[in-house]
Design a protein around this nucleic acid. Sequence first.
DNA 1: CATGTCTCTGTGAGCGTTCACAGTAGAGAA
DNA 2: TTCTCTACTGTGAACGCTCACAGAGACATG
Lengths: 343, 343
Amino acid sequence: MTMSNAGARRKAPTIHDVAREAGVSRGTVSRVLNGGHYVSPAAREAVDAAIKSTGYVVNRHARSLITGRSDSVGFLLTEPQERFFEDPNFNVLLRGCTQALAAYDIPLLLMLAGTQDERRRITRYITAGHVDGVLLVSSHSGDPVAEELRAAGVPLVACGKPIGHASKVSYVAADDRDGARDMVRYLHQSGRRRIATVTGPLDTPGGVDRLAGYREVLAELGIAPDDRLIEHGDYSRAGGEAAAERLLAAAPDLDAVFVASDLMAQGVLSALHRAGRRVPEDVAIGGFDDSPAALASSPELTTIRQPWDRIATEMVRVLLAQIGGEDPAAVILPTELIERRST
Amino acid sequence: MTMSNAGARRKAPTIHDVAREAGVSRGTVSRVLNGGHYVSPAAREAVDAAIKSTGYVVNRHARSLITGRSDSVGFLLTEPQERFFEDPNFNVLLRGCTQALAAYDIPLLLMLAGTQDERRRITRYITAGHVDGVLLVSSHSGDPVAEELRAAGVPLVACGKPIGHASKVSYVAADDRDGARDMVRYLHQSGRRRIATVTGPLDTPGGVDRLAGYREVLAELGIAPDDRLIEHGDYSRAGGEAAAERLLAAAPDLDAVFVASDLMAQGVLSALHRAGRRVPEDVAIGGFDDSPAALASSPELTTIRQPWDRIATEMVRVLLAQIGGEDPAAVILPTELIERRST
DNA sequence: CATGTCTCTGTGAGCGTTCACAGTAGAGAA
DNA sequence: TTCTCTACTGTGAACGCTCACAGAGACATG
């Protein structure tokens, strides 16, 4: 039984204890801990053994104190939180980032900055150097926190293209425009001719780009633009429902709707159902996001999948690169059309 | 313009700078920072002014190094993560905990321990003292991580009653049994006489207690137990669907089903629909959780709401108390019946 | 043999804070 | 006056680590 002092919780072993146990100096132990350069094989072995036998774990506070790094990053949500926390995509993103960071042994600090007060507190916390970088989630433009952090020189990667920021800030985003193009083209190919759309909020890049994709394809197909076929939503179920009602009133002959989010598509589905339109027989519905909502709907939604896991991985990669001194970068990832029963 | 050195990111002011600026010693500044006892009003004022003028923010690493505390807590998820991250209740919980902690200026570290490797890494991290306490989310019993942390003396609060742990571990949970009782009593009061149930997994406290509540009420009503009316699910949509099919086969005369989760209730709804039973006319459905799934179903589900926001608040309160030296505690919170269209 | 280069090792200093302790000044009591 | 007590203040010494530096061999080069 090598229980030694397990469960004692008396005093954690320090680098000094390891050094003594291994018969080397603190410096050598430290070198082993940090990559092991300029360490003889014998010394490294002795240190590794000593680490194991003492159960040594590096004290991050001591390390951070001297290095100035914290070896942690923040996941910052500056939205009114309800919206995002309700969004299943958000969870995939959060999980993906946590996992990607875990691979580097970097803990993720979850920060919510819904109110003005919280924003101030968190900005202070971040600029004080308590995290090495920030993964920023905030769909709306003109986020003051982003600008403040950028100005303070904090490494920063946004999820989605931050609009309104002329300045250089890294971001990772799905190709919204291309996804929208795919969906509209697909609806047209399956024989639909009066294709309407429910957009997202137009102060979000996703809202803008998905609408742009819709318009582009119609133009390329030589279909004249028709404003009656365009209604705006707010990414919520209720918003989708209301928009669908307006569409039905303005353009009762529509035979397809490209909806800029699955959640809104659920609302559209309800409205159509109430209006007595069958899906997909009378009206085809194309969603966006491939959220669980797409599967929970009946019929299940044909939709555009955003590669949230890859987005998470890329955000972490870009952030770590930036922490390592590289320049900001933008990454655009392709989407995928998922065919289900609503078209 | 009092820009002073804003945006410089050169060198953060230390307690020393503040002391010099205020014309006092480090010790006095430190005392102001930590409650301000034994500090003259004049000194305190000078220090406060100096803090403001220098933009000083305490260096948590230095503080943690000497105090041994980290002033942060972990939010640990030991489940296979998909299940939980899909669960909207989880999000409310996570958000609630983050916010409750923010009120104490304590950051939350999100930790996912899905695989064996991750579990080891994270246990190491935690027992090394890098967090002061852990909020544990893990529905299944016999969680080795929980036991390890408890043994290591790490303050710990579980979400939901940990079964299989004879040992003293704090937890906060909704009153599952009472919620189930409410629902079954309600179904009976609305005239249903053949009330079936789809249970959760019986290795979860929720599964066990909700079933117990169901049985109790029937017994109290003098209704003889009938095993054909009880089927087991796994909290998944598909599981609910399968269970409902078995129920319909074994007890075709059922006129109500108490389903131990909304997600399963969705599956039950599908199965009933396929079998040509109308809800609520032929069969009443009672769910549990009041998750968004309850609203996404048609008809919308009558269900039992768990007070997730209060659960979060209480978990944080109990954890902080425990970090402060208090003994473990169990908190049971009342549920609420939400009446909708499925009954 | 002197010199340089390369790998490896130990040592002292210091990161920014808190804590224990010693010390000061003023008030009140003897 | 002198002593004690209280309220306040300053000072070293940690905390556990990394980093810069110096130095020791080993080996090659001139």
